[in-house]
Design a protein around this nucleic acid. Structure first.
Length: 347
DNA sequence: AAGTCTTTCAACCGCAGCACA
DNA sequence: TTGTGCTGCGGTTGAAAGACT
């Protein structure tokens, strides 16, 4: 009894029992304002859950599934709408590298974002880039490109944006009230990554704090990695230490661990800075790296290429671009996927 | 201005797991 | 133990909007 809903019994009250199929001619497609209001009002009065009976009792000619989806993905008051921020992009990449298409699980770590939204982001942005780069989104090449190029660039963008934001607002921010920091600059320049991945000391407040820090919810990383490889040191206690430091603090993930394991004297400039700054500074290699080849050791980075110059162009593009993700892909990525480069890797 | 192509995202579909009778 | 219904998840679709020609 899915969308075509062939349930024949209404249970709202006993005098309103049998209805034939014509009576249950269910609506499909976009929701109207009236339907939205009906659903909102009903949930306000009766709470959510028991979606099938909710749909019937509220008088909505929709399946319970449809009501649930509409509420969770759109009408819920805490749904966060608008562009996916850089911090969120980074988090999505990070968590997807760990969990794959576990959209719901990933969404739990992005306050206000729905699994549907994250899934759409992945399909429309990330897969689009994989297609442009002519490789499969699940291929090792593409994943490595994400890890070694895209994610470090995101961190740099975040750093650059927050640095510029801190210059412009630092004199006026007192730390109370709504954050004046633009959504793409929700972290401080000196400790950005740590705040992003940090469970922090605030147990129940998440998202962008008045200080401009992005804080994950209580159930976020560090508390909720289940059986996966999580460094025990990633705790709120540790976070408080690193939060006041220029270091990114303790390793928080396999990916960050892996970043830190890459020799800092390779010729990949931006990640260098980023690694040297202490991103995942614990130096531990996580479980995920077992399936990966060190880019430095395997000759990923061609000493002859002028990455400094290339990345300067990238940064300029970032600053000019409206789309945070699109400009992160460029000739460097294509080079990364070139046969001469791939020949050096153990695909 | 009109037609076509591309992108985005809300909504649907099918399935799996769970609770309960 | 089994059947039924409900919920939640991940994959997919299609309408609408925007970009392009």
């Amino acid at each position: 009894m899915d969308v075509k809903g062939r349930s024949s019994i209404s249970v709202c009250n006993d005098t309103d029992i049998l209805q034939n199929d014509e009576d249950l001619d269910l609506r499909r497609g976009p929701w109207t304002v009236e339907e939205d209001l009906t659903l909102i009002n009903y949930i306000a009065n009766h709470g959510e859950g028991r979606w099938n009976s909710l749909a019937r009792c509220a008088g909505l000619k929709r399946t319970g599934k449809s009501c649930r989806l509409r509420w969770l993905n759109y009408l819920r008051p805490d749904v966060r709408r608008g562009n996916i921020t850089l911090e969120e992009q980074l988090l999505i990449l990070e968590l997807h590298s760990r969990w794959g298409n576990r959209w719901s699980k990933i969404a739990q770590h992005l306050p206000g974002r729905t699994d549907n939204e994250i899934k759409n982001y992945w399909r429309t942005r990330v897969q689009k880039h994989a297609k442009q780069l002519k490789c499969d989104v699940n291929s090792k090449q593409f994943k490595d490109t994400m890890r070694y190029l895209w994610m470090p660039r995101l961190v740099e963008r975040i750093q650059a944006a927050s640095a510029s934001a801190s210059v412009s607002v630092s004199s006026s921010v007192t730390g109370t009230g709504p954050s004046p920091v633009p959504s793409t600059t929700g972290i401080t320049a000196s400790s950005h990554h740590h705040h992003l991945f940090n469970n922090h000391n605030n147990n129940n407040n998440s998202g962008f704090r008045s200080s401009g820090q992005f804080v994950l919810p209580k159930t976020s990383i560090g508390n909720d990695f289940g059986g996966s490889q999580v460094t025990p040191s990633y705790t709120p206690d540790n976070s408080s230490t690193a939060a006041s430091s220029d270091s990114f603090g303790t390793p928080v993930s396999d990916l960050t661990d892996y970043y830190s394991a890459i020799p800092i004297n390779n010729n990949h400039p931006n990640p260098d800075n980023y690694f040297q700054a202490g991103y995942g500074g614990g130096g531990q290699v996580g479980n995920y790296s077992e399936s990966m080849t060190s880019p430095a050791a395997a000759g990923y980075y061609n000493p002859g290429l002028d990455f400094q110059a290339m990345d300067q162009i990238n940064i300029n593009n970032w600053m000019d671009s409206d789309d945070a993700s699109d400009s992160l892909w460029n000739v460097e990525d294509i080079w990364f996927l070139q046969p001469h480069h791939l020949n050096t890797t153990n695909i």
